[in-house]
Write a protein that binds this DNA or RNA. Structure first.
Lengths: 102, 102
DNA sequence: CAGGTATATTGATGGATGTCGATACATCGA
DNA sequence: TCGATGTATCGACATCCATCAATATACCTG
């Protein structure tokens, strides 16, 4: 079967190689805390990491771990400004996931 | 914050309660074997479980486990016909995920 | 430069998960 | 009814993952 131009799971069989990366990206959203974290960032446009601790009710190291997972998946990107890191969503990456679903 | 009408992660903060179910649904797609399994079913429209073993290269019990995970997540549904189970995608559920991403 | 603050990393731990072989359950054909 | 076949479940095991406290690193301020 030919590989689809858009990589939709629904239009063409997922190749073995692609499956790994796609699965890892979905895995980044497969945790409730990360999902809320991602949602906070996506909604605000940009969020200081220091403002994520209270709403998530997790330790600083845990929140840092989750931001790293999302960043490694390419779903968010951080910019260091002085002592603070500002996180923002990466729309292209989200679009890739949406595309894979149809 | 008010709950959004469409449940998009991008439009409104994901509520703590919703995050769990949404995360579980994403988790169903967070494994490369399940992703290929889901893709096979989505592409064919309907697949006999017996035809899933060869392309996935996993034991029968493992494939059965994965179909169960996807079914529990509501992403596929199985219909038993005689000795065989035919699996098919549940489009509404996929649409829910797409909706959550924008 | 020294102390304080924001973030990342490390190490440890309990729990979840992917995998398989063995077995149980259901259904068909003879 | 009996054996064969397709699917689900069980038990075991190795690996992965979420979480925290402690510590390291980077940066600002005085």
């Amino acid at each position: 079967m030919e590989k689809s131009c858009c990589g939709s799971v629904l239009d063409a069989a997922v190749e073995v190689d692609d499956a790994d990366e796609l699965a890892r990206t979905f895995a980044a959203l497969a945790d409730p805390v990360r999902l809320r974290l991602f949602s906070l960032i996506a909604n605000a446009g940009e969020v200081c990491a220091c403002d994520l601790l209270a709403p998530l009710d997790r330790s600083q190291s845990t929140v840092s771990h989750h931001t790293k997972v999302l960043a490694d998946a390419g779903l968010i990107a951080g910019e260091k400004r002085g002592r603070w890191v500002w996180w923002s969503m990466v729309p292209e990456r989200v679009e890739l996931l949406r595309g894979a679903l149809g």
